[in-house]
Design a protein around this nucleic acid. Structure first.
Lengths: 265, 265
DNA sequence: AGCAGCAACATTGGATACAATCAATATGGT
DNA sequence: ACCATATTGATTGTATCCAATGTTGCTGCT
């Protein structure tokens, strides 16, 4: 019943046109297509440090590693290039980008603003069920932090297997807020921002210091409290503070880590 | 409070590591490399409407059109996919994404927030020279609007050649603010946001109505005034209002245009 | 010994070839 | 006539090939 085309004016209706916001969610694009899968796997290895910043990614090596030809590898690299994970130099191939302090600062400043926007939108429409999810995430989060801190004091190795849970509950907490904002584009932009360095740096930075981890928990608590009361102003303030503080920590960690801190251009 | 400082101390650099913020500037990446050039040219044609939303982009056709093989075309398409300009369907190739009203709303909401952040940062460090550039851009902008409105009344065709100037002076105006913010990542995110639909929709939406164009000029005036006085609060307010208003216009135009109204949700 | 220039090698860039998959039409059965 | 199925054609996906470019190590000269 859809055919009845008017000559030049396209039909008004429900043409199944794809929406712009159908964009790939950058973070968890599971592999159904080879190139996407390769891009994910390569960037995962970069995040994991297997391909350290500054190292060259040779197409042939990657191709062999993943048992494919160079063609899909090259396409995946082109995608990583756009995502800002690698840099593509004319006839020299791709090199892994190194985050430096100014970059981190910039990214966190933007992220703080965006998550601030997200929560101020979320406050209005968040459901009780969503708040409950945040509570649960927060509970897990606090618990894991306790575990980590306790583990640190005795055995430095034990905590490593809890780190993924730490990351996950943190993501859940922030994820609910972003989801509740109802702005899909906002979600995508924040996820893009995450990609690459934010994640692994935070991880290293925070899990090094028990006090800071507890500080983090307290900040989440404040956010949760504000959003429960549907207090947009306070919620936003708490969220931006939380993110900016995390940014400071990341920068601090990066600089104390030294070495790959500052690259010119 | 605004403690994040950067440009003054670029930090001593030993490792020649590339910076993350060296990211491609999405908008004006001139063609030094084939794939980048192709991506630009293809997205330009999409923006121009030559490849309308929903249409399929066949690799062979593109290859012939640009006199290259399919290989670089495919890589360019992979990039456009990440940029959100097209959607890649498993064995069916690429189709041009169609912006719908919710997408536009979301994007403008984010953009308003980000340009708000940009100007509130810019207020502090903007130089007199930069303000002067904004003044000049604003002057050109107003002039062109006058021309366009005058042209509209007599001949509907004359104004077409002025539209690029309109766009350019507008970009210059906003560009200075973003540049003055000193946050490179912010610049990149905003540019990414622009890409695809923002631009062509605004163009169509605004150039249709003289009153709204003048409104636009007035808003720029308010922004310029606030930033000249280094009034962060007012500048931000004026900027977000300006962007949000433009977003409303874009949505309004899109919906009045009918067509691909709401596919999302 | 040190440096310039050159030659051999390694790697990327683009084109082509072939296989896999999807869309459309044709075909046969009910 | 209609629906299910098979066949064909078109298009994408991956692999391979060749050319262009960059890198490295050698040679010979000062």
């Amino acid at each position: 019943m859809r055919k009845l085309r008017k000559l030049s004016t396209p039909e008004p209706d429900d043409t199944g046109l794809p929406s712009v916001a159908t964009l790939s969610g950058s973070i968890a694009t599971s592999a159904e297509q080879l190139v996407a899968s390769l891009a994910d796997r390569i960037s995962a290895k970069i995040v994991a440090g297997e391909y350290p910043p500054g190292s060259r990614l040779r197409q042939e090596a990657l191709a062999e590693e993943f048992s494919v030809s160079r063609t899909p590898i090259r396409e995946a690299l082109r995608q990583l290039e756009v995502k800002g994970v690698i840099q593509h130099r004319p006839n020299q191939g791709a090199i892994v980008l190194a985050p430096n302090a100014p970059d981190i600062r910039d990214a966190y400043q933007v992220r703080a603003e965006l998550e601030g926007l997200a929560i101020s939108l979320a406050v209005e429409w968040i459901t009780d069920e969503q708040i409950e999810r945040m509570r649960r995430a927060q509970k897990r989060f606090a618990k894991i932090v306790d575990t980590l801190i306790a583990a640190r004091k005795s055995n430095a190795k034990t905590h490593l297997k809890d780190v993924p849970n730490w990351v996950e509950s943190n993501d859940e907490f922030h994820g609910v807020v972003i989801e509740a904002s109802g702005n899909r584009r906002l979600k995508q932009v924040i996820q893009d921002l995450h990609l690459g360095f934010t994640r692994n740096i935070m991880l290293s930075a925070l899990t090094m210091d028990g006090r800071r981890m507890r500080e983090n928990v307290a900040q989440h608590e404040a956010i949760l409290s504000a959003i429960s009361r549907h207090d947009a102003i306070e919620a936003r303030k708490a969220m931006t503070h939380h993110i900016l503080r995390s940014g400071e920590l990341a920068v601090w960690w990066l600089e104390s880590q030294g070495r790959l801190g500052a690259s010119g251009r």
